[in-house]
Nucleic acid binder design. Structure first.
Lengths: 237, 237
DNA sequence: CGGAATTTGTGCGTATGTATT
DNA sequence: GAATACATACGCACAAATTCC
């Protein structure tokens, strides 16, 4: 592991600990250089990374300060897998409703950028949080990249399987978000009424090399799901 | 303007042009160094910035490739001001419903991190797109930072006024997102029915120095609003 | 298939500019 | 105005991944 990632992890652990709160000042670049025994560039690289991940904000001439969001139970849409760290501490469940290999629809072809004869895994899951119905998820995986799935994997964590077992490297993601009304089928699955609100999230996950491998459509229970998005410093363009 | 920002803008113009599409390869770092007559670090800095902004993805040993989303009419939640570039080309309107200086509620105090006796501007606007009702926005500005607002400013663009006239420098942003049902008052404003779905977005805008200056709550018309969020490469943590 | 060439990634040292304290 | 701290930028060396032959 490169030095800057190692240092970043250590600083993140420090920031996440109870020692630090919003607005606290980090050690100066000079001090961090000495402490970790690395060059200035490396520290700058670390701080740039932390800023981009939303852990700190940088103020020129002044210092680097902790950024700590104070709301819990929100899904952080900027983390690789939609159901991660911000929901830590909650009991999550996954019930498999369907799992099969199919040929892609036009919609799936377009979003995964594949031809019509390419096989895809179709997975439908009912997700729960603390035992309550939380979301209906329909996912499509390019079989060429994800050659095998079974019930055990699907009810545990597909992403963990992809990363740890298949050694895939997810890169970036596109999320598309809308609000709508539930139809009969989905309302019944979520124990809601027809016409009740729902958050509809479409996500396309790409590997590091830019190839899309997962297209997912999620309908959230409107009373259970809430989302969090951190915008970094843009300055123009 | 620093070299890396200047180069970034030029590359973004190039990428946004019709010449380039998703997956196209940029010139190599070596070539960019020669073309712009700068050092390698500067080019790397440019590419890191473009990657973070979602314009490109980087593949080690291979090259840098254009990332171009193909959906229009979506609001990009990662851009400083919620109603920017992705809605370019649409006719946007702002009708002022209320504008006054008030003392903060507990909620506003907490989100803007101010004491109870600090004055805030309260602005309520009805926003439209292509003449259709689009969203109801209630915003709170710290008067100490934004000392003056009037109807003209509020019905044009508050952010443009803050940046260009007040010379404020917005830094980062926190967005919180939920789905809910409309009450009578808001349903009437949006020409919808009581109980219809709505997207509810709370945003806190901070200056570069980390001080919050704007807390906004927006209720979107569920048939008009759709959102776009680009996740960058995270790789672990 | 293997090795060479290409391309990007990490890291050091240094100098100078700019904003804050 | 001086001291401190972060920002930009150059040049160099070597590592790691991909691509080409």
């Amino acid at each position: 592991m490169p030095k800057y990632k190692d240092i970043a992890r250590k600083l993140i652990r420090k920031i996440d600990s109870d020692d630090m709160k919003q607005g606290d000042k980090l050690a100066s670049i000079e001090e961090l250089m000495k402490y970790f025994d690395v060059g200035k560039n490396t520290i700058i690289q670390v701080l740039t990374l932390l800023e981009r991940q939303g852990y700190i904000y940088q103020v020129r001439g002044s210092g680097n300060f902790v950024r700590k969001h104070r709301r819990h139970g929100y899904i952080n849409l900027l983390e690789a897998n939609g159901f991660k760290s911000t929901l830590q501490g909650f009991r999550l469940g996954s019930e498999m409703l369907d799992l099969k290999v199919i040929k892609p629809t036009t919609e799936v072809m377009a979003n995964l950028d594949i031809p019509e004869d390419e096989d895809v895994y179709y997975v439908k899951r009912l997700r729960s949080i603390e035992g309550r119905k939380f979301a209906i998820e329909k996912s499509f995986y390019v079989k060429d990249i994800v050659p095998y799935l079974n019930q055990e994997i699907v009810e545990d964590s597909i992403f963990r399987y992809l990363i740890e077992d298949l050694k895939l490297k997810p890169g970036f993601t596109d999320h598309f978000f809308r609000v709508g009304k539930l139809n009969k089928e989905n309302a019944e699955l979520l124990n809601l009424k027809i016409g009740d609100p729902t958050a509809f999230l479409e996500s396309i996950y790409y590997l590091e090399n830019g190839r899309p491998f997962d297209y997912s459509k999620i309908l959230y229970h409107y009373e259970e799901a809430q989302f969090f998005i951190q915008g970094a410093s843009n300055t123009e363009f």
